[in-house]
Design a protein around this nucleic acid. Structure first.
Lengths: 231, 231
DNA sequence: TTTGCCAGAATATGATCAAATTATTCGCTG
DNA sequence: CAGCGAATAATTTGATCATATTCTGGCAAA
């Protein structure tokens, strides 16, 4: 096998140069994940080519990917928009996360090395600083990265994919809710989780994350029962 | 609002003319779902433009969508292929379906009308005929449609999406396994399921589908422990 | 074995065509 | 004469293609 050749060739993608459609995909993904695009907002190809300064082919491909992941919605005619969730959708998401997240946390606890735990702890501390500073965007980003890292540690790529994909679906709504509540009222169970993980208490970790999920997602659900904002 | 205009215009997409990328997507999806593309097989853009007689832009978009759904795999360099599952992957899929399918069946049972039940029964009978006739492709297609219809009846679009997506992941492997076993040895629990649904026994339906999933998926898992075929 | 070259495939652009929404005009009725 | 509504024009946006460019992997020669 000429496995060495690949290394020596120092392929363009390997040395950090990602294809444009990949770059655009990640940018657009973050736009959805962190709620820079509001629920219901229309997404146009040409609008994005300007906003992200790219050709339309990469933008087009990025949009298709996001649609397939449920992050965007194809509206039958040729319109694409950020999905507008209803209370039932939220219930489904809560249900799915209530099953997936504990399962993944349990596996992550069994596999996490001290280094991994340190990394998670550092992420959580950064998260706390964002909350104190009232930095909403930072909170959303770090909170996601905390959970995402947990998924990765579980070494279950398919289940992690599923869990990861759910974040894209409630990302826009989460932003709206957190924007209303302010960063001060955003408790989490990360401390309990980390403690359980350090003790290799997999069941305890699963319980902690389950509470974290319920606590966070119920806030989103309640915002649907509450009177909708003006516009 | 000129909502009337839209109706009168009799929009092209509304009267059945789907965009090419959508058509290509569905064709390519079926190719994966029913195992016409073998696990590990390389998928090239230009190869598909010829095979499906389409331009490369629609093919490109279809491939991106399938990659996002986990039906295809982007191999880092510019290669795309049908994912080759390992035993761990199968375990993940079993786990996910063991949770999703019963849940959806339970909801479907609560909501199914007599007409719906009749439709499912008809699908199952057609399925039996395919088995008797030794028609593997027909079996794969009808079995999928049976479960897919069940997902739809649950009226939980997000969970249904997740469950549906899993089929794309084990489709190619399922084809290989069934090809080895022959259609005669493909038992299912559909009869038990339908009986429970007719009796509005939601818990019973959930149990039946759980057994159906385990029975079917375990066959796939075992084919990994069994000695791999020659090539 | 290593290095450089080459064929072939994928990426990316811009042009072109088609479709849908929005804006405008015109005619009608009250 | 004013206001409403329908038909139509104009603009915007999406879909598709042909083409240019870049990259990869293999092959051949040193």
């Amino acid at each position: 096998m000429n496995k060495a050749a690949g290394k020596l060739t120092e392929s363009a993608t390997a040395r950090g140069r990602l294809p444009a459609h990949e770059v655009i995909y990640r940018q657009l993904r973050d736009l959805v994940l962190y709620g820079d695009l509001a629920p219901g907002q229309a997404v146009t190809i040409q609008g994005l080519t300007e906003r992200l300064g790219a050709g339309m082919t990469p933008v087009r491909e990025a949009i298709r990917r996001l649609i397939a992941e449920g992050a965007l919605e194809f509206q039958g005619n040729r319109r694409v928009s950020v999905p507008l969730l209803n209370a039932d959708n939220i219930s489904e998401l809560i249900l799915a996360r209530q099953w997936l997240d504990p399962h993944l946390s349990l596996r992550a606890t069994e596999r996490a090395t001290p280094d991994d735990l340190e990394e998670l702890t550092a992420l959580d501390e950064a998260l706390d600083r964002s909350i104190s500073a009232g930095d909403l965007r930072g909170y959303l980003e770090l909170n996601y990265r905390f959970h995402k890292r947990l998924y990765e540690l579980a070494e279950a790529p398919i289940l992690a994919d599923l869990a990861d994909g759910l974040w894209l679906r409630f990302g826009p709504s989460l932003r709206v809710v957190c924007g209303r509540l302010g960063t001060q009222n955003l408790p989490d169970k990360h401390k309990d989780l980390l403690e359980a993980m350090r003790a290799k208490d997999a069941e305890g970790a699963a319980r902690a994350i389950r509470e974290d999920v319920i606590q966070g997602m119920e806030q989103v659900r309640q915002s649907f029962d509450a009177p909708a904002v003006s516009n």
